[in-house]
Design a protein around this nucleic acid. Structure first.
Lengths: 353, 353
DNA sequence: CGAGGTTGTTCAAACGTTTGAGCAAATTAA
DNA sequence: TTAATTTGCTCAAACGTTTGAACAACCTCG
């Protein structure tokens, strides 16, 4: 056995990667026994297992994922598609997805759609080509055509959406209840004594922004306040667009006394305009944003906002995927997991004390 | 031929994925001919190619990446390791790496080390297991032991470092010249009339922060200014640590009249403390950060900082990888690609006008 | 002592591609 | 017309693993 080993070590000189075959040769057993030993198969003797692992270690054996994935028809790779990577929300979601899935032996492939439908399609294409075992995605704002997502479903692998999803697509979803969250914001502002609440809305075709608008409207109605079209202005929610919308609101005959922006960057833009014009926040106009971007806590005044529980959403999305993989037959109930968002009240909307 | 086709379509009913074998059966040719047709092999007739592609389309054929990667010994996957995903710098680098590599048929697997050495090791492990064709990485702050990176090199696949690299590891590197950039900052502050420039330094074991400190020292020396130990304080560069260091600096017998922080978050922390204490920026103390995080442009006063050309760095790192893959023999010269950083002068250090 | 079960292993096929070698037919050159 | 070359394909092995089936050797039990 010893000269077998040394022969093999010599062979290793020419840089070929070690395979289970090499291990088998060293020990004088077959590759299948080695494979089973490495996978702790019950029908392999403890003695052999130890020997195999020892030799594997010595030869610096690294299993070839490609081969086993091919044979098993399972890659242990999960694709994650996010719109953009620079927000704190997505980075935290990712971190948690990864944490949960790594523990179960999955690795993740992250792709950014950059909010572009075209890029999103090519990402899906690439992920499917890589034979991922599932996809966890948050849709680009632009995306209306769902055929590429249908393609994932038709492959028979799990598809989990988070944050940005579509009801039409019949799949698992994890996110907050935008409608209720909007309610919460409006009621907080009313509670602060505000009477004319404006809404810097997101792209009204996207489900989540649509729901925020609905929530805003219904909350006003519920409290007997009129819904004024002038006070709802659609925006791409970027900083500069927040400025533009705030300016428009200030140009109205009757100014609002509160602004609820569907995104933090838009809220920041609004805040800048208010500051430039010497309008006191929150005394004259109160302000609430959405997403809890880090900067909301350190600008002056700090901006009230919504914490979307990114860590929890990531964790739940990953678990939803695992659930689907482990119980592929249960096609029946699709989960809509709704996480409670949290309103973080900061200076920009806190008139009391 | 037509009944062959319909037979095959029927077969497809039972959800099995189409393979080149299926296409071969339909057309009555061999799988190898199909493979060659799909890959535009010159020895396949135009007629056959067209027929194969037509049938492939009809049967909704999707090539199995795992199989071809296994056979070719090449996965067309590139691993990217970044410390954290929430900074604008890394997200922009990623976007550009992806753009360049996608064009060449590569997909990227992104993993976050979360600045943890342990996580970094397991990421490397995972990437190697997935048989990536190369790794592009920015090292975690913690990382001192390079053995895991050596492991990548020993696999014989390209390793490209960016931003955070180590000279000891003999590999390609893309980044800015931290030493010169520090010079530039110090000279800008001197130009503004500052005489006592403090430095909120990064972890002095990390190469880039070490170089920033060296640059700071040498620039002062060059201009005949003393180097005062009290004015250089090491920090983890997070917001709160920036506050702590700024407080320490203010407690000195003789206050600095300028602060150069090696990171934007630390600069922001410093700014908060200055504002709270009613110290005028830049008049009493000028401030410069590092990295051009978005918030530096919208806080009041806006913070002068360094743009590290993230897009360019991403692009160059990806190209360095491609270079290595295409010319594996050229072991000789390893590239240190140095990109010129740009000083963005904003209100926090602009005393003139 | 023989039937039945368990243990530890081998055998061979399979996963879906790619690719060097081989070969017949068609084309070109001499 | 024949030899040489080109064209268009087939054959079979290979990539490294996993896995159902088979089987010998050993153990157990009545």
């Amino acid at each position: 056995m010893f000269n077998r080993l040394s022969k093999c070590i010599k062979k290793l000189g020419n840089k070929k990667k070690t395979t289970i075959k090499d291990i088998a040769n060293v020990l004088g057993i077959t590759p299948s026994a080695v494979s089973r030993a490495l996978n702790n198969h019950p029908r392999i003797s403890e003695k052999t297992k130890i020997a195999v692992k020892q030799v594997a270690e010595n030869l610096n054996y690294q299993p070839n994922h490609l081969a086993s994935a091919l044979r098993k028809g399972k890659s242990n790779l999960v694709g994650v598609i996010i719109p953009r990577n620079n927000s704190n929300f997505f980075s935290s979601v990712l971190e948690n997805i990864e944490e949960v899935l790594n523990k179960k032996g999955y690795n993740i492939i992250i792709t950014q759609s950059n909010e572009s439908y075209k890029k999103e399609c090519s990402s899906i294409e690439a992920l499917l080509y890589t034979q991922v075992d599932g996809v966890i995605a948050s849709m680009a704002n632009e995306t209306v055509d769902l055929s590429y997502y249908e393609k994932i479903k038709s492959k028979g692998i799990p598809l989990i959406l988070f944050d940005r999803g579509e009801n039409d697509l019949n799949v698992d979803y994890v996110g907050i209840d935008d409608y209720l969250t909007s309610h919460m914001i409006v009621e907080h502002l009313l509670d602060q004594g505000c009477k004319r609440i404006a809404h810097i809305a997101g792209y009204s075709k996207t489900r989540i922004y649509k729901n925020r608008i609905r929530g805003y409207n219904d909350a006003l109605e519920k409290h007997g306040l009129p819904i004024e079209k002038d006070l709802i202005i659609e925006s791409n929610l970027r900083l500069n667009d927040g400025r533009r919308v705030m300016q428009e609101l200030l140009n109205l005959n009757e100014r609002p006394d509160a602004v609820y922006a569907a995104g933090d960057y838009a809220a920041l833009g609004a805040l800048q305009v208010l500051e430039e014009q010497g309008i006191k926040v929150p005394e004259e106009i109160a302000l609430v944003g959405f997403s809890n971007e880090p900067f909301t806590s350190f600008v002056k005044p700090s901006i009230s906002t919504i914490d979307q529980k990114s860590a929890l959403i990531g964790k739940l999305a990953a678990e939803a995927f695992l659930e689907r993989v482990n119980n592929p037959k249960v096609k029946a109930s699709l989960n809509k997991i709704i996480v409670d968002a949290e309103l973080i009240i900061r200076d920009s909307s806190n008139k009391k004390e």
